[in-house]
Design a protein around this nucleic acid. Structure first.
Length: 686
DNA sequence: AGGCCTCGAGTTCC
DNA sequence: CTCGAGGCCT
């Protein structure tokens, strides 16, 4: 019997040695052929031979499990399903990129770049394709792939490592003997058109649902909890960016970064090039536009980035998008359909939104039946009537929008849209303030069920109290049955009441109660946001929480105190104060606190006024501080940062290669500081 | 007064 | 994603 083999006692030493060498040779061969196929796009052996080598390695590893290493090609096939994806916080946020559509947009981009750099020469731009897939972050530590995560909201994504490991164009180990200690490679996972067609063919024969387009197929495949399914889905990866990098110098050019990636065995866009000036960008766009249909994958445009990384740093970021890059998008696919009806939706603030009900039409592989018309003026401007034939497209290839009507196909009986004078939900009068584009129901919380539902849904939403299981369906039922009228009522629900509702058994009812219980531990910022005060969104709620530290401090404040908070002006201040002065709202807050909602209270922010009233302008590159760091230090000390030098500027902080701002400061006699002097000023105030 | 930037609010489809 | 509007800078 082969019993002895199982215990390894009959394996003699020299033989094991040969086996190890053979396994290593096989791994190298397989990796080399994969690289040739997926990265160089130049197959080096027939598929059948590859499969034969692969099976040999699999058999060897089955007999000698001690030979299995994490970067073996056999370790890509996927394992047991996961219960869920874990959240991953990105060390360097994964930002989005601004879009341009017209030649004019691109000319403006180039002009802003040259102005920002104080440069009259043509700028060198790296041009690439804008793949229609999903952005992914690959983390390599000492050359080994240790984690892969989705973009998510840019700050937090999901851990999809096991799925990403099945993608053969992604090296499990970087091809270098001197890898950086840490590198985060960023790029796009996508599905080739041919693989998409094959997949849908398979889905059809298996009587499974087909995917609408390659993007959805790629997204669906990557979000599989069972990575064995992902392994059968032929996904590809192309790198275009970088997150953190430790233990190696950052390349000085974007194009050099991509060259480096290629040398490490990571696939990059084959169509990439470096051009000069705005005309170079437009020429690239035209060439790619011509070749678009012949490419093996779908793209929705091209991307331009300043090639010089130093110049990228100088321009920096505006909120969540870099100023040094732009996506030049192809026109969105359009279709024509008929407006069957225009209905009115009532939002949580009472805002009335006309929504076009459309005859179903396929746009970019997705069937569209609704499209927002935003407001009354928009309907007039586009002159949309019931029965009209209209052109629709998916804005940014996601949200449907009515572009225009087709006047020559308007039927004689087309009906003009009129905004109702009474709320379609509660019958209260509609009010539209002069100078405002939005018409609103005047019923408020108490009278209008739509506003109540909207407000309650806002309260339970993920960014507010984050109560899982309380969705639209359930809230609708609870409001209609009169079981919940204010957020405080949620916390008095019982198992019996909940179990009586449609589509609710004991188990789900208990889940809702557990989620409610869990939500009682929260943060002040979430709580303020959840209240749904007009003009107070997530960001303003955070500022308020930070500034006042406790709810009672906020409740006791007056207009002057609220106006101290950054980015709060008279309109927002009034909205906040009138909300808290309403006895009903006070009562609601008391009830919520009484039901056990609590958070950790902080100290009110000490306003550091060391640099209060001083305005700074930053120019050039500082030796150690980044622009963002310097700005944060100034603001923390109560100072302000402006974009250009004027008489009111107190100090100009100048670094290497300072441009026109420095000259202007000299002309005006403004005090100029270098980094060292600046740091002293921030510490001591003198 | 005018322009830029951010934030808020509303929306679609799977 | 889009639009509108508030806040702040020039």
């Amino acid at each position: 019997m082969g019993q002895d083999d199982l215990f390894g006692s009959s394996v003699n030493e020299p033989q094991a040695y040969d086996v190890a060498a053979r396994a290593e040779w096989l791994r190298n061969e397989l990796n080399r052929h994969s690289h040739a196929y997926y990265v160089l796009d130049n197959p080096s052996i027939p598929d059948a031979e590859y499969d034969q080598l692969f099976r040999e390695l699999q058999e060897l590893e089955a007999k000698h499990p001690e030979l299995i290493v994490s970067d073996s090609p056999t370790q890509r096939v996927g394992g047991e399903p996961l219960p869920e994806f874990h959240q991953v916080r990105h060390e360097v946020p994964m930002l989005s990129i601004n879009n341009g559509f017209s030649e004019e947009d691109i000319q403006n981009f180039d002009r802003r770049v040259r102005e920002g750099l104080g440069n009259d020469h043509d700028i060198r731009y790296a041009c690439e394709l804008k793949f229609d897939g999903l952005a992914i972050n690959l983390r390599y530590e000492n050359g080994l792939l240790v984690q892969a995560s989705t973009r998510g909201d840019g700050f937090t994504g999901e851990d999809v490592t096991v799925n990403i490991r099945t993608i053969r164009s992604i090296p499990l180990k970087l091809q270098t003997t001197t890898p950086p200690s840490l590198i985060e490679v960023r790029g796009e996972v996508l599905m080739f058109k041919s693989d998409f067609a094959k997949l849908n063919q398979r889905q059809r024969t298996a009587n499974q649902k087909e995917f609408a387009n390659p993007r959805n197929a790629a997204a669906g495949s990557l979000r599989q909890l069972d990575s064995r399914i992902t392994a059968q889905r032929s996904l590809r990866f192309f790198a275009y960016g970088i997150g953190r990098l430790d233990g190696a110098p950052m390349p000085t050019r974007h194009s050099a970064l991509l060259d480096w990636y290629q040398s490490l065995g990571i696939a990059v866009c084959a169509e990439r090039t470096v051009v000069s000036g705005a005309q170079g960008l437009l020429d690239f766009y035209a060439v790619i536009g011509q070749r678009r249909t012949q490419l093996p994958y779908e793209i929705d445009g091209v991307v331009y980035k300043i090639d010089d990384i130093e110049q990228q740093k100088i321009l920096g970021y505006v909120s969540r998008a870099p100023r040094f890059a732009i996506a030049h998008k192809f026109p969105a696919e359009e279709a024509t359909t008929t407006v069957l009806d225009i209905e009115i939706q009532v939002g949580r603030t009472g805002a009335l939104t006309p929504v076009a009900r459309l005859a179903p039409v396929s746009v970019g592989g997705v069937t569209v039946t609704n499209a927002t018309l935003h407001n009354e003026d928009e309907v007039r401007r586009k002159d949309i009537r019931l029965g009209d034939c209209v052109i629709v497209r998916r804005a940014g290839d996601v949200i449907p929008e009515v572009v225009a009507n087709v006047p020559e196909r308007r039927p004689d009986n087309a009906i003009e849209f009129v905004m109702p004078t009474a709320c379609p939900v509660c019958g209260s009068p509609i009010v539209r303030l002069e100078e405002e584009a939005i018409a609103r129901c005047s019923g408020g919380w108490l009278k209008c069920a739509a506003q109540r539902k909207g407000g309650l849904l806002h309260f339970v939403s993920r960014r507010a109290m984050d109560i899982e299981g309380l969705g639209e369906q359930l809230v609708e039922q609870l409001v209609d049955k009169g079981l919940v009228n204010t957020p405080a009522d949620f916390y008095h629900l019982t198992l019996d009441t909940l179990s009586d509702l449609d589509r609710m058994a004991k188990k789900s009812a208990q889940n809702v109660l557990d989620a409610l219980e869990k939500s009682k531990t929260t943060t002040l910022a979430r709580f303020i946001y959840a209240l749904g005060i007009r003009h107070v969104g997530e960001s303003t709620a955070k500022s308020l929480a930070k500034h006042f530290g406790s709810l009672d401090a906020l409740l006791a404040s007056d207009e002057a105190r609220v106006l101290e908070v950054a980015d709060i002006g008279p309109v927002v201040a009034l909205s906040i104060l009138s909300f808290f002065s309403d006895p009903l709202n006070r009562q609601l807050i008391d009830q919520l606190r009484a039901s056990g909602i609590h958070w950790e209270e902080g100290e009110p922010e000490q306003s550091n006024d060391l640099l209060a009233g001083k305005t700074f302008v930053l120019t050039g590159t500082l030796p150690t501080l980044s622009r963002d760091d310097a700005r944060a230090m100034i603001e923390a000390a109560g100072g302000k940062v402006a974009g250009s030098v004027s008489k009111k500027t107190s100090y100009v902080v100048a670094g290497e290669e300072a441009g026109s701002k420095l000259t202007r400061a000299e002309e005006l006699g403004v005090v100029i500081l270098d980094e060292e002097q600046f740091l002293k000023l921030v510490e001591s105030g003198s």
